[in-house]
């Protein structure tokens, strides 16, 4: 009887094949002297060696160029202990290790009610996430309005934001499907919704700080930094599921993209700012009385500051 079944999921070929193995060690690689010969060009001639262990098996990296990844953690590992059902990634090929008695899902009916239930479940999660987004957005808009509110109009406006969130999540989902043959749509939509809500929240908090500090450049700087940090977070969270690179590399990618984007926005604003402005620019944020934590100065002190500004520009 076979000791181990190895499922080979060749990413490039989009095909799965199964090998029954009963003697150890099992050598896996691109070389023709292996027990299992792979065609993936990212796999080394001798990439991986599997040995039997007391419980399950032990996979050992045979000093390969691209390493061996635990699929869930997507971290490079030298030695990995495997039990039935575990997966590894070498090059772009997924390997799954199974005991011969590993249970399989019952056969699906040709017309399956479960797939409808699954679709409904997905739909309800998406619906719930978008509802949260719409509620937060409508509330934010309501706080900004000072005329009679047409609720339908507010909801309609928030639809644009919802559509953008779905679009953004879909793009990542598509990427996930290409890279990992999984959509992760619920997860990606949740990440997007959390990002948009957090961004609204952070912008509001910055406004309250801006009201107190009376400096346009500090509040602008805070907007850029917080905007950049949020972008890093959302990119990292999306890449975490979708991309097949190490966490460290994902963090680097997220940072590079985010700060490049922030720098691009900052540079565009700077480059397009007119060098002569007919009107004064000052810290103009006003917030309700409870939010003021800075005490007022006397008129004498204020005018003294004004005089020193005149002296400076003169």
């Amino acid at each position: 009887m076979a000791e181990l079944i190895i499922e080979v999921d060749d990413h490039a070929q989009r095909a799965r094949s199964y090998y029954s193995v009963d003697t150890f060690p099992v050598h896996i690689g691109r070389g023709y002297d292996n027990d299992i010969i792979l065609s993936d060009p990212h796999v080394c001639a001798r990439h991986l060696v599997i040995n039997a262990a007391e419980q399950g098996w032990v996979a050992e990296d045979a000093h390969s160029k691209n390493g061996v990844y635990d699929e869930e953690k997507t971290d490079k590992k030298e030695v990995i202990h495997l039990v039935s059902g575990d997966s590894l990634l070498i090059g772009k090929t997924h390997l799954r290790f199974l005991m011969p008695d590993h249970p399989v899902e019952p056969a699906r009916l040709l017309s399956d009610a479960n797939s409808i239930v699954g679709a409904l479940k997905l739909l309800s999660v998406v619906w719930a996430l978008l509802s949260i987004l719409v509620m937060v957005f409508v509330f934010d808009q309501y706080l900004m309005s000072a005329s009679k509110v047409h609720f339908g109009k507010l909801v309609a406006d928030s639809m644009v934001v919802s559509a953008s969130a779905v679009f953004w999540a879909s793009i990542w989902s598509l990427l996930g499907f290409i890279v990992r043959r999984k959509l992760f749509f619920q997860y990606l939509l949740a990440v997007t919704v959390v990002y948009i809500v957090a961004d609204l929240l952070v912008e509001n908090i910055i406004d309250y700080v801006a009201f107190n500090i009376n400096s346009t450049w500090i509040s602008d700087f805070m907007s850029y930094v917080m905007g950049g940090l949020l972008l890093v977070a959302v990119l990292y969270a999306s890449m975490k599921k979708v991309l097949l690179v190490s966490n460290k590399r994902k963090m680097i990618l997220a940072n590079v993209f985010s700060w490049l984007a922030v720098a691009a926005v900052g540079f565009t604003v700077y480059a397009n700012a007119p060098d002569f402005n007919h009107n004064p620019v000052y810290a103009a944020e006003l917030k309700p009385p409870f939010s003021r934590i800075v005490t007022s100065m006397t008129l004498d002190d204020f005018l003294y500051q004004s005089e020193s500004i005149i002296d400076k520009i003169e």
């Binding site: 810290a283 005490t295 007022s296 100065m297 204020f302 400076k312």
Partner: peptide, 13 residues
């Protein structure tokens, strides 16, 4: 003229 330079603050009047 040059650009405006501003003095901004809370004042008790």
């Amino acid at each position: 003229v040059g650009n405006y330079q501003c003095n901004t603050g809370f004042v008790k009047l």
